[in-house]
């Protein structure tokens, strides 16, 4: 029986092109994103970190999508929930915690931006801001330059469904479509723009439907299944590399935390709704699937949990011991030296 299950899993992995080790890596990034995020909240509530913004519930979508790109040649334009994406692109737990605590060695901004405003020159992650959807245009521009320079680069733009109401979303999809640029637009659709539900954000139920206005594929994806997300993203990346232009992925996820540490979603969502979403948590779901396929067991889970706990602990201690930015650097980097 176990053997038969293993066979089925191997078949499924082949469909997505992923070996068992890669599934384990996928699960590791998802679990690490969750554990780091939970630590961030602990530090926020303990008064050590003024602000946290989470991706809990998005991990399967984030890691599944990110692993379909090639971090050695593709460019990433993420948004503030994308902890799982940046971890899969090579950002370390230590770097994340240095960002949370605004340390001088935070690779995103040296402590200048709020946490989770990702950027990492060495990891090809382009600095982002707080006004939403601006990075969609940057991704299109990166892709334009890649095409002109003859590079085999795909640009990835990640954003929430609230961002799909912004002009920059529409201008970016239009620009990329007109010029058939190698971009993949990944919408992490959790159904809420802070407190405003999807029904009050748009008169359609699918963000994917917006792709039709730009003559590109719009694909709805189950964002609770990292393999489904991986496969859909892989297809979009392949299309981009073939020179056929951009794709819009509408990846349905759940938002398991409030918008940020300054929000309380119990004030605008029902207890039933919150409990129902909690029951859909993609992380135990993926673990159960791996177990059902005979490629994961309790012992592996225990050892992974210990490893992650150790890494989160190390990252926290490292960040706490790291220097804060020197006040004398306030005026640096307004212009090139």
């Amino acid at each position: 029986m176990a053997k038969a299950k293993g066979k089925a899993a191997a078949q499924k992995h082949r469909d997505g092109g992923l070996a068992t080790e890669q599934l384990h890596e996928m699960y590791y990034h998802m679990a690490m994103a969750r554990a780091l995020d939970e630590r961030c909240w602990v530090m926020n509530r303990g008064g050590q970190a003024p602000f946290v913004i989470s991706g809990q519930g998005h991990e399967a979508a984030q890691v599944g999508a990110a692993m379909a790109f090639d971090p050695s040649q593709d460019f990433l334009c993420p948004y503030y929930r994308d902890l799982g994406v940046v971890l899969a692109f090579g950002v370390t737990a230590r770097e994340v915690m240095c960002g949370l605590l605004a340390r001088a060695n935070d690779p995103s901004s040296g402590g200048r931006q709020m946490p989770s405003h990702w950027g990492h020159a060495g990891r090809r992650i382009i600095t982002g801001s707080s006004p939403v959807a601006t990075q969609i245009l940057h991704a299109a521009g990166v892709a334009l330059a890649a095409r002109i320079r003859g590079e085999d680069t795909v640009a990835a733009a990640f954003f929430g469904e609230g961002s799909s109401n912004q002009g920059d979303f529409h201008e970016g999809l239009n620009f990329a479509s007109v010029h058939r640029l190698p971009v993949v637009f990944v919408c992490e659709n959790n159904g809420y723009a802070i407190s405003v539900p999807l029904s009050k954000q748009m008169a359609i139920s699918s963000v994917a439907a917006r792709a039709a206005g730009y003559g590109i594929p719009g694909v709805e994806v189950d964002g609770l299944d990292p393999l489904a997300v991986y496969q859909a993203t892989q297809a979009a990346v392949a299309r981009a590399r073939r020179g056929e232009g951009p794709t819009l992925l509408d990846v349905k996820v759940v938002r398991l935390t409030s918008h940020s540490s300054d929000d309380d979603q119990r004030s605008y969502r029902t207890a039933e709704d919150l409990a129902a979403e909690r029951a859909q948590d993609p992380i135990p779901r993926f673990r159960a699937w791996m177990e059902s396929q005979g490629i994961w067991d309790a012992q592996q889970e225990k050892s992974l949990a210990a490893r992650i706990k150790g890494e989160v602990e190390d990252a926290t201690e490292f960040a706490l011991a790291s220097p804060v930015p020197d006040a004398a650097t306030l005026l640096d980097h307004v212009y090139a030296p």
Partner: peptide, 28 residues
């Protein structure tokens, strides 16, 4: 046409994509 290009009538797109192109090595 690659170096002198008509763009859609959308100013934010013109500037926003130029930012991306500049970051990826061009001089827009």
């Amino acid at each position: 046409e690659d170096r002198v290009m008509d763009s859609p009538l959308a100013e934010s797109a013109i500037i926003g994509t130029a930012i991306g192109a500049a970051i990826n090595g061009l001089r827009p």
